[in-house]
Simulated assay, not measured.
Amino acid sequence: MNNINLQLYSFGFECNLSLLDKIKCAGEMGYAGVEFARGYEELPVEQVKKALDDAGVKAVSAHVALDFMEQDLPYLAKLGVKFVACPMAPFNTAEEAKELAEDLNKFGQMAKQYGITIGYHNHTGEFYQDQGKYLMDYLIENTDPETVAFEIDCGWASAAGINPVEYINQHAGRIAGIHIKENGGVIGADKPQSRHEAPNHPKFELDEDGKPIIPPEFKKMMEEREKLNVPQGSGIVDWKAVKAAADAQREGVIYVVEREASYGGKGRIDCLKEDIAWLKENL
């Protein structure tokens, strides 16, 4: 497998590289393309295009929240992006899934003029059930297959207890992208928030230096989740079967490495180098 792309979010929040430097680094590591997580807002499109050309990588896709979708589509089209996915959105019932589907359909029609397909990327909460059915199923079933497709994050799906291969087969034709996120265990589906309630972000007290004081139980939970990000090829996902299923159901499926955390005390870039090396050798 050679056509492997990198979600730029994978560099992590502690990375000091600029967006242009991340593009260059992705090319140096051997990635064929990148998936943006915004960060280009203040940059002229010509500058980003030059960085892509210089690095020898393509702009294959992007993650854009619904609030920024309309304003970002023209910019991303100029970069050559063909798939723009909402990275996450709150919804916790069948009805709310249908409401979100309406939003995706609206942006799908809007993106059509740019030759862009709109998508949605899952975490674990999309596999929470309402009326005996996954929320993700309601979302897929109520979106227009002509303009809306999906990016299955196999790491989060398997963490929720879903077999990614079976899920891809169940929704054949609708899966335009695969997030290659290695996962070492099952934690179940998080209960998602309602799209009609204010976001319930955790609030922490600050120490005398103004840094957040992380409660032990929250820190433990985050550490356990980071441990799920094991080295590529050592987790619970059968990547050969995933690729076979994805390629069989739709042409031009994009494969994007996304890493949430490092492992073994290594730096993030070293982990990303090992990720692509394993994929090129084994898929």
Rank of each mutant, 00 (worst) to 15 (best):
I4D: 02
I4L: 14
L6Y: 02
L8A: 06
S10Y: 08
G12L: 09
L17A: 13
L17W: 11
K22V: 07
G27C: 04
G27R: 04
V34L: 07
G39E: 04
Y40I: 12
E41Q: 14
E42C: 13
E42Y: 10
L43R: 07
E46Q: 14
A59P: 01
V60S: 02
V60Y: 00
S61N: 03
H63T: 03
H63G: 03
H63F: 06
V64P: 01
M69Q: 11
P74W: 06
A77Q: 06
V81Y: 02
K82T: 12
P90S: 11
F91R: 00
N92A: 06
E95F: 05
A97E: 02
K98C: 10
E102G: 12
E102C: 12
L104P: 02
N105E: 08
Q109D: 14
K112Y: 12
K112H: 13
Y114G: 04
Y114H: 11
T117S: 07
G119H: 08
Y120I: 10
Y120N: 09
N122L: 07
G125Q: 10
D130P: 04
Q131T: 03
G132N: 03
G132H: 07
L139R: 00
D144G: 08
P145Q: 09
E146D: 15
T147N: 12
F150R: 04
W156D: 05
A160N: 01
I162N: 00
V165N: 00
N169C: 03
Q170T: 08
H171Y: 14
H171V: 03
A172I: 04
R174M: 11
I175S: 02
A176F: 03
I187A: 01
S194I: 07
H196D: 08
E197V: 02
P199N: 02
N200R: 15
H201A: 13
K203D: 07
K203E: 14
D207A: 11
G210W: 13
P212K: 05
I213M: 13
P215E: 05
M221S: 14
E224H: 09
R225T: 12
E226M: 15
K227D: 12
L228S: 07
V230K: 05
P231V: 06
Q232M: 15
S234I: 11
G235C: 11
K240F: 01
A246V: 09
G252A: 15
I254P: 00
I254M: 14
E258G: 08
E258A: 12
R259K: 10
G265A: 11
K266D: 00
R268W: 04
L272D: 00
K273I: 04
E274T: 00
E281N: 09
E281A: 14
L283D: 00
